[in-house]
């Protein structure tokens, strides 16, 4: 073997220096800044309802919304049954993996980590038994995560029973469908710092993403930004019509129809006849019908219910 590489020794060393230097500046140095960012209450809320991972993971390889937490609003104490101030809780049933902030409390920042461990007792949470979490704050408005299973004895089962189906949001599974269906190819989740304030709302702040994966900012905005969509439009019915066929509520929309997310049956268990619906809708667009056909009410365990829960959670 004629290894005639000696004259390139210097070149190889310079190459290592150049590429290594570039990676030091663009990866190592920013990592110190980014690692020192403390999670805001928004980041805690977001990671607790989204769960450990929203993209591909071994817990949910087909992105079908397996092993996701739910966010619930409870008005009675799940343990004692006594009435209490309406409170948002995050319920992780057995086997649902915990988000970054629980597994790696360093992600929360120094103060929140200390409070979450000492006051919130998050280290005691076990994903074998499931857990119920809260975002709490002390009298100095310092936010931390509280493991209510340890601090108040709330079990996932009792908490879900206390909330009832109508007060449960499957936003975590919904975000999974948001990623799987490619909603983020058109709808960004990043109002820009330079404009966008008036219509799309405030741009996110530094600590708003801790523990979130993927962030799915999107880069190619062909449709409205959705970071605060739940504040602009909180109508479940409008969302339902819009997802089934966007042209029902916005004739010029170029959004695809997501009617297939209703699944085979509607809320009453009756089979949905998509062919008939589309035929009647075509008659409507051709002027042969005065009104479009009725959009079927979705079943409470359908994918579209979770997706709408997610959209309405984006306040």
């Amino acid at each position: 073997m004629n290894v005639n590489f000696r004259e390139y020794k210097m070149g190889s060393r310079f190459f290592a220096l150049a590429l290594g230097g570039s990676m030091t500046i663009t990866l190592l140095l920013p990592s110190f800044d980014i690692a020192s960012v403390s999670a805001t209450d928004i980041a805690m809320d977001k990671q607790l309802w989204a769960g450990h991972e929203t993209g591909f993971s071994l817990d949910d390889p087909l992105l079908l919304g397996w092993h996701k937490p739910v966010k619930a609003l409870i008005k009675t104490d799940p343990k004692t049954g006594q009435a209490m101030e309406p409170t948002s809780v995050y319920v992780y049933e057995k086997g649902a993996p915990f988000p970054g902030g629980i597994l790696h409390p360093d992600n929360l920042g120094v103060v929140s980590k200390k409070l979450s461990l000492e006051v919130g007792r998050i280290a005691e949470a076990s994903n074998k038994d499931g857990a119920v979490f809260l975002v709490s704050s002390n009298d100095q408005k310092q936010y931390f995560i509280e493991n209510a299973t340890a601090t108040r004895g709330w079990t996932p089962e009792d908490t879900l029973k206390a909330a009832g189906d109508e007060n449960v949001s499957h936003a975590g599974a919904g975000k999974t469908y948001f990623v799987r269906e490619g909603c983020w190819w058109c709808h960004t989740l990043l109002p820009e710092q330079t404009q966008d304030w008036q219509v799309f709302g405030a741009p996110p702040m530094l600590g708003d993403f801790n523990g979130e994966s993927p962030t799915a900012f999107g880069s190619d905005r062909k449709a409205p930004d959705l970071l605060h969509v739940g504040s602009r439009n909180a109508s479940r019915e409008w969302m339902m019509l819009h997802f089934f066929n966007p042209r029902l509520v916005q004739p010029h929309s170029i959004m695809p129809r997501f009617d297939y997310m209703w699944g085979p049956v509607d809320a009453k268990g009756v089979k949905i006849d998509y062919a008939k619906w589309r035929a009647e809708y075509n008659e409507y667009t051709e002027g042969k019908r005065v009104t479009p056909p009725e959009v079927p009410m979705y079943a409470s365990n359908s994918e579209i219910r979770s997706l709408i829960d997610f959209v309405l959670t984006m306040k």
Binding site: N210, E212, S213, P214, T215
Partner: peptide, 8 residues
């Protein structure tokens, strides 16, 4: 499983 701004 890096998250947040690091992931972005």
């Amino acid at each position: 499983h890096l998250t947040g701004l690091t992931e972005a």
